[in-house]
Design a protein around this nucleic acid. Sequence first.
DNA 1: CCTATTGTTTGATGTCTTCAAGCATCGAGT
DNA 2: ACTCGATGCTTGAAGACATCAAACAATAGG
Lengths: 138, 138
Amino acid sequence: MPSIPSKAQLMELLAHSVSTHYADFTTAAADMGLTSSQAKTLTVLRRAPASMRSLAVTLACDASNMTGIIDRLEKRDLVRREVSATDRRVKNVALTETGEKAIDTIRERMEQTQTGLDSLSDEERAELFRLLTVVFPR
Amino acid sequence: MPSIPSKAQLMELLAHSVSTHYADFTTAAADMGLTSSQAKTLTVLRRAPASMRSLAVTLACDASNMTGIIDRLEKRDLVRREVSATDRRVKNVALTETGEKAIDTIRERMEQTQTGLDSLSDEERAELFRLLTVVFPR
DNA sequence: CCTATTGTTTGATGTCTTCAAGCATCGAGT
DNA sequence: ACTCGATGCTTGAAGACATCAAACAATAGG
């Protein structure tokens, strides 16, 4: 019979977990010569191309901020800008093949997180998945 | 009978959860006029005073970086530097009362996370606590 | 068309981050 | 006590991040 943690305790553990995961991500990104902002941007683009604006919304930053980040990613051939066919104001940003590989590599290299998840059983993974879905709905 | 998520799916959900939590934290900090680095520093100090070096280790950044962060926090009376009694090279950093209040307020204002956790039952909170402890051991 | 809005970029300013270099202090060994 | 290497902190330089205000082009709705 597990004792029930207080909400404050859970908040604290959550903060710790987030910090650990974030540090893991940042380290893996740094190994590839990327900052965490750059790597986060690649993560967003992993699913689908996005306009500058929608990137800014997703990453919760100013649009002008994205200009610099995409500039630096584009200079390294990790993404490319394409003028939208339907609205010439809009620039859609897409991963290049190099960019895809980069973000995949970063995920693989998140060792702390990987080994942490490996120490769960299938049932536990399913339960963690369910609980996280409740706490952080999409 | 829940279907078992792939490890990749769980990694992805974890990334989403971390992003959400982190954004929540950053927003709450910004409401208080603090950057996330400053707020993170206050969080570390919440438990106990720490030297510049140990702060740098905990926050996984260069020691010289801490100098600037603590400079700005000190300028706003959120922390204070005290020369160690046992080693005059060392400066111990401690929260002021204002600093304590600031970090407490930030925690209270993390609404997304709060309401997310509120939607769990006691048993679910205990289970989430347990699972996170396994995945991200201290 | 005219006008308000939207998407992006630019420039200014401040913060973050790292690196190399510097100074002060400590500690171990002589 | 003295030297010397290690340690703790700060400074300066350079690049990245972040936000704001302002500019510009293009769109959308009247």
